[in-house]
Design a protein around this nucleic acid. Structure first.
Length: 259
DNA sequence: ATGGCTATATGTTATAGA
């Protein structure tokens, strides 16, 4: 089962680029972030014409996540537990049954800038809820995949210019520590289980020629429960997508598991 | 770099992103 995560930065603006990527990469499961659309505004035919089932959790203007799957999606839930007052659409979960059942979440973790401030407080509290949900899923002792835009640069090697991010919400020590707390529970960063060293990015800013200068950061991640990590076969980043016509500022990150 | 670009809705300007 090949699972990819892709922050598309607006599903209406990305209809062409998203369609081309689905045709070329043809993942079994696609986890999407930043739909920037309500559910009724999502052009579902992009998925349905290619044989995907799709479940969305949309919101007007920003945020919005989705899971598209060639296999049936079961037990779909929307919203990250832990705060009934939180109305931001940043989390959707479903079970995909291939050779094995896999519980899969698509997540869009808050950016958190400027830090310090209320947006950063929201990021850290959201990450506490993420840790709690990740822990609850571990107790099920099944393959779990938590994929999405984490808005966290885990280590300096995950940025072309780490010094430029030193005071940014994506790289502050508290952000990195909260990300590591999920790893310490027993989750594996799928990409880092297979690829080591610097120079691997999933986001390049639209500004200042960041793509042309390869001034990127790695912030889109696939986290695996032990039962999923056991099945991991391959990983990759479709960086070339960033160089195509009217691209998102993120690119797809994918993995193959024997499930 | 305190915002150079992009997308969306609040829409000929503001908000958000990272």
């Amino acid at each position: 089962m090949r699972i990819a995560t892709f922050n598309i930065n607006g599903i209406k603006a990305r209809a062409q680029a998203l369609s081309e990527w689905l045709d070329e990469a043809a993942p079994d499961v696609a986890l999407l972030q930043e739909l920037k659309s309500v559910d009724e505004g999502v052009p579902r035919e992009i998925f349905e014409d290619r044989g995907y089932n799709v479940e969305t959790h949309g919101q007007k203007g920003f945020n919005g996540v989705a899971i598209a799957s060639k296999l049936p999606l079961e037990d779909v839930t929307r919203g990250l537990p832990g705060d009934d007052a939180d109305e931001q659409a940043r989390w959707i979960e479903a079970t995909v049954v291939g050779d094995t059942a896999v519980r899969i979440a698509a997540l869009y973790l808050p950016n958190g800038n400027p830090a310090p401030g209320p947006k950063y407080d929201y990021k850290l509290s959201w990450m506490e809820r993420l840790e709690a949900r990740a822990k609850a899923l571990l107790a099920e002792e099944i393959p779990v995949v938590l994929g999405g835009d984490y808005n966290v640069i885990p280590q300096d090697e995950d940025a072309a210019r780490p010094e430029a991010w030193r005071k940014d919400a994506l790289a502050l020590p508290a952000s990195r520590a909260a990300f590591r707390r999920v790893l310490h529970l027993g989750y594996t960063d799928a990409f880092r289980a297979k690829v080591h060293g610097p120079g691997h990015y999933s986001f390049w800013d639209y500004q200042a020629g960041a793509w042309d200068r390869n001034d990127g950061i790695r912030i889109d991640h696939l986290l695996l429960s032990p039962q999923a990590a056991d099945l991991l076969r391959a990983v990759g980043i479709d960086a070339a997508v960033r160089g195509k016509e009217k691209p998102s500022d993120h690119v797809p990150v994918w993995m193959e598991i024997a499930a």
